[in-house]
């Protein structure tokens, strides 16, 4: 047992990595880091960040019906919803206020899972840092509303599955000629919407 051989072996490992970092690919001892603002790794489809609301055609009529299920189920209670009303103070099936305090939100994705109207989904952009936490980091309805096309762009397979299911439900409804009182019922959703 020669004192110092282990140290020499360790030194050889770092020297090897020093040398290979100049010409090897990342998985064989090359540089593993990515120079972030210039180069970016592709965002994985299932990646989830803060939520957003989906609208089909018109931002004035989002899929959200202000049922407040997500607000109730949110573990951190970061969602605040108020129903819109018509001039006669009769509540409408759309939100007047839909706020998400993303300083509180912990990106768990439970709102997305519980929403019966396929309305709220987890978003991709993660560079939301701001020095103004009251205005910039409290997302209002207008910040949150994004089109279905956008949803298709960030999560093609998930969105396609959701759309297919929605279409199937619509057709079923049409063929069964449902009574008007039942239109608000959530579409029967099993785990078909999962990507």
């Amino acid at each position: 047992m020669f004192f110092g051989l282990g140290v020499l072996r360790g030194l050889m490992v770092t020297l090897k990595n020093f040398v290979t970092s100049y010409f090897m690919p990342p998985d064989r001892g090359g540089l593993f880091t990515v120079e972030y603002p210039e180069k970016r790794l592709p965002v994985i489809e299932r990646f989830r960040n803060f939520p957003f609301l989906v609208y089909d055609k018109d931002p004035e009529n989002p899929r959200c019906v202000a049922c407040e299920i997500c607000a109730n189920e949110c573990p951190t209670k970061c969602i605040y919803i108020e129903k819109d009303t018509d001039p006669n103070k009769k509540p409408l099936r759309r939100p007047a206020i839909f706020d998400i305090d993303i300083t509180v939100c912990m990106n768990c994705g439970i709102c997305e899972e519980v929403c019966p109207f396929d309305s709220i989904y987890m978003d991709h952009p993660f560079e939301v840092a701001s020095s103004d936490r009251l205005e910039k980091l409290l997302f209002h309805k207008n910040d949150l509303l994004k089109s279905n096309d956008y949803f298709h762009k960030i999560r093609p397979t998930h969105a396609a599955a959701i759309d297919a299911r929605r279409r199937a439900v619509e057709e079923k409804k049409k063929s069964a000629a449902v009574k008007p009182s039942e239109t608000g019922q959530p579409p029967k959703a099993q785990n078909g919407g999962k990507p």
């Binding site: 770092t14 020297l15 990595n17 020093f18 970092s21 100049y22 990342p26 001892g29 090359g30 540089l31 593993f32 880091t33 120079e35």
Partner: peptide
């Protein structure tokens, strides 16, 4: 720079 390379990083650039 040198230690960065040993750790498969780029180092200050």
């Amino acid at each position: 720079k040198i230690i960065g390379r040993m750790q498969n990083r780029i180092g200050p650039n």
